[in-house]
Design a protein around this nucleic acid. Structure first.
Lengths: 384, 384
DNA sequence: CTGAAAGCGCTTACAG
DNA sequence: CTGAAAGCGCTTACAG
C-alpha cells in the first residue's frame, strides 16, 4: 500500500480531489492579483485589513468601522467590505485589535482543578452567562497546583482580558493583586477573602458541614466521626465549624475528629483501615468526610474490610463531586451549585465592568445556599 | 451596622490596614518618579516596556531580550532589568508581543461540551501535556452548540494561537478550514475525518459498541436492545456497527434497534415507558444505550415502572460519563480514556509544529482502545 | 553585548 | 459617511 502522502487511492475520487485543489489555488491567485503588482506581495501571505481595504476600494478606517461600529457606515459600504472580507478570507488579528483598542472582550476564568465537578459546573455556568452577555470566556485549569494557578492568572493579565474570575482553594490575594494592578476587575469564586476589597461569590460552607452532620443525626447516628483533611483549605475549616454546630444543637450525640494528611482517596482508604481496626463496638456509626473523594476512598476500602455501608455505618461526603471515584452504593452528599456560582460571578463582573465608567463600585459578596442530596449511603442506615 | 464601604470595624485592625495603604501609595510615587518629569506621565498609567528600559537605563531591545532570549544578555544587565521589572510591577502585553513576534506560545482547545466527563478528561490530559511542554493551553467549551463551537474556533484563529485541538461531535471541516487557512496546525480529537488531510486522535468507537454488546452476551443476555439515538453523530454510527458485529459473532442472540430523538435522559426515560408497556415476556433482557446519559434516564425511570436492573434486565452505557445523572445501581459502561486522547493530541500537535520548519509533515491517526468497566447494572444479571 | 529604528495589524480621534 | 495619520506596546534584524 502506498504511503498516505503519495496521494489518495483511486476509490477515494482522486479527480474530485484534484479539482478542488485547483480551485483553491485559482482563487488565491485571483484574490490577491489586484494588489500583487503594487505591493510585491507573497501570494501566500494571509490577508490583512489593509488588503481588504484595497480590495474594497475604501480606507482601513472604514473596514475597521464595519467590523466594530457598523452603525457608523452606510449600507452599501458595509456590503462592499463584507464581500471583500469573505472573498479574501480575512480573519482579523485579535492581538492587534486589543493592542490598538486597549483591551479585549474576553474574560478569563482560572479554576484550580477540573477533577472536581464543582469547578466543571462553575465553568459551565460562567460559559453560559458569558455567552449570553456576548463575552468570550477563556478557561484555564491549574491541575490542583497553586503555582500553575498563579501562572494562569498572569497569563490572563498579560492577555489584557477585560476581567478575571478566580476559583482557588486558598488565599490567592498576592496573585490577584498582580492582576488587579492593571485596574481590571477580578471576582473570587468559591473563596471568601474575608474583607471588602474584592467581590466574591461563595457557597455557605459552614452550612455545608451543618447540613451533612444534621442529616446523619436525623438518620439516627449518635457517634459521629468527622474526617477533616488538611485544615489550610478554607472550605474544610468552615465545614468543620458547621459540623460542630449541628452536634451542639443535638442531644446525646458524641463526635470525634480525624485529620488526614490530604483529601485523596488513598487517605480515605487508610482511614477505613484505622476504623476497621477498632472493633465493632467502638466504631462510629456515622462518618462525614469533608470531600466526596475521601468518602469514596473510605467506602470502597471499607467494603473489603467487612464494614458494610450503610448497614453498619452511614457515610456522607461534601461537594457532590461526580468526578470522584464511583462508590458501590450511592454516596449522600451536599451539593455546591457550581453552575449558579459561575453564572452569578459573571453577572457580578459585568456589573463591575460597567460601573468602571465613573460610578463608584461597592464590592459585593453573594452567598449561595448548598443543597443536601441524600442517597443510599445514609438512607439505608438503621440504628442498631 | 455600618455599610461595608464606610470602612472596616475597629476589631479588624484598621491601623494596620491604613499603614498598608500608605505604603502602596508611597511606592507608586517613588517608582514612577524618575520618568515623570521627562515624560509627563500620568502616574496611574501602567508601566510599559519603555518605562522599564528607562528605569534600568537600557534600551527597549535589551529589555525584550531579557524577557525572551536571556542567554543573549549579560548577567549584570539581566539583574538590573529584572529589578526594574519587579520594582515597577511591569506586566508585558501579550497582545503586543504576539503581534510583533507574529505568533504566540498558546494553543487552543475547543471542546463541544463539558457536561460529558470524557471531554473534561480530554481537557485535563491536554492541559497536563501542554504544561509539560511549556505551552499555554486555553480551553473553550461550546455547550453542545455547533455554532458556538465555530465561534470558539474563530476566536482562536483571531487570537493567532500556535495550534488548535478540536473535539467535535460532527463534521467540522468547514470550521477547521477557516482556522487552517492561516497555516496553523489543527488536530481533531475524538472525531475521525476519514481522510488524510488532518491529524486526529480517536477512540475506536466500533470497538466500544463491540465490547458493550459482547459483555452483555457474556453475562447471558439473549434478547438485546440497542438504543441508538440520533445517527448523525459519528460515535453513534460506529458503536452501532460494533454492536452488530458482536451479535453476529454470537449464536442464538436476537437484537433489535430503537432510535431515540436525542441522547438525553428524557429520551432514556421515555424508552423505559415503552419497554415497560410491552409486558415481561417480550421485553429485552439486555440493553445497550450509545451513551451513559440515555442509560441513566432509562434506569432511573425503569425502577419506578417495576423493572429491576440488573435482576430483570442488564443495562450498559457507553462513555463512562461520570457527569451523567447518578443511577441507583452502578452503571456498566465502556470508557473512552479521554486523558490519553488529550495528551496524545498535544504531542501530535507539537510534532506538527516542529515539523512546520521544513520537513514535510505526514498526517497521522492515533487510535486509542476503549476499556470495559463492568459494574452492578450488568454483573447482577442472572439469566432467567 | 547593546542601541536605534522599522514594523507587526489594527483602532481611533481628527479633519474633511 | 469617509480618509489620512498617529499610535497601541512590543520584537527583531541590523549596525555598532
Amino acid at each position: 500500500m502506498e504511503p498516505a502522502f503519495h496521494g489518495r487511492p483511486a476509490d477515494h475520487h482522486p479527480a474530485a480531489h484534484h479539482v478542488y485543489l485547483l480551485q483553491q489555488a485559482d482563487r488565491r491567485r485571483h484574490d490577491l492579483g489586484s494588489c500583487q503588482g503594487l505591493m510585491g506581495l507573497d501570494s501566500m501571505r494571509a490577508p490583512t485589513l489593509r488588503d481588504v481595504a484595497r480590495h474594497a476600494g475604501v480606507s482601513m478606517g472604514t473596514v475597521s468601522h464595519v467590523l466594530n461600529h457598523p452603525q457608523k457606515v452606510s449600507e452599501s459600504t458595509i456590503a462592499k467590505v463584507r464581500a471583500s472580507i469573505e472573498e479574501l478570507g480575512f480573519v482579523r488579528d485579535a492581538n492587534a485589535s486589543s493592542l490598538a483598542a486597549g483591551g479585549s472582550r474576553s474574560i478569563g476564568l482560572v479554576v484550580i482543578d477540573l477533577g472536581n465537578s464543582m469547578f466543571v459546573d462553575v465553568a459551565r455556568g460562567a460559559q453560559e452567562a458569558a455567552r449570553d452577555a456576548g463575552l468570550n470566556l477563556m478557561l484555564a485549569a491549574s491541575q490542583d497546583d497553586f503555582a500553575a494557578q498563579g501562572e494562569n492568572v498572569d497569563f490572563f493579565a498579560e492577555a489584557r482580558v477585560a476581567g478575571l474570575l478566580l476559583a482557588p482553594l486558598q488565599d490567592s490575594s498576592e496573585q490577584m493583586r498582580r492582576f488587579s494592578a492593571r485596574g481590571r476587575p477580578a471576582i473570587l469564586v468559591n473563596y471568601d477573602p474575608g474583607d471588602e476589597g474584592v467581590c466574591c461569590v461563595v457557597v455557605d460552607n459552614e452550612q455545608v458541614g451543618y447540613l451533612a452532620a444534621r442529616h446523619l443525626i436525623e438518620q439516627g447516628c449518635r457517634r459521629l466521626l468527622f474526617v477533616c483533611g488538611d485544615e489550610a483549605i478554607q472550605p474544610v475549616t468552615l465545614r468543620r465549624a458547621g459540623l460542630r454546630r449541628a452536634v451542639s444543637e443535638a442531644k446525646g450525640v458524641r463526635f470525634e475528629e480525624v485529620h488526614t494528611p490530604d483529601l485523596t482517596e488513598q487517605s480515605g482508604a487508610a482511614l477505613a483501615h484505622r476504623v476497621a481496626a477498632r472493633g465493632p463496638g467502638t466504631r462510629p456509626d456515622g462518618i462525614v468526610t469533608v470531600t466526596d473523594t475521601l468518602a469514596a476512598g473510605f467506602m470502597n476500602a471499607a467494603e473489603a474490610l467487612g464494614i458494610s455501608v450503610p448497614r453498619d455505618m452511614a457515610v456522607m461526603g461534601c461537594d457532590d463531586n461526580r468526578l470522584a471515584e464511583p462508590t458501590t452504593v450511592g454516596l449522600s452528599t451536599v451539593a455546591m451549585e457550581g453552575k449558579a456560582l459561575g453564572g452569578a460571578a459573571i453577572r457580578m463582573l459585568l456589573e463591575e465592568l460597567s460601573a468602571a465608567a465613573g460610578i463608584p463600585h461597592v464590592h459585593q459578596r453573594i452567598v449561595v445556599e448548598p443543597r443536601l442530596i441524600p442517597r443510599r449511603s445514609t438512607l439505608g442506615f438503621e440504628r442498631g
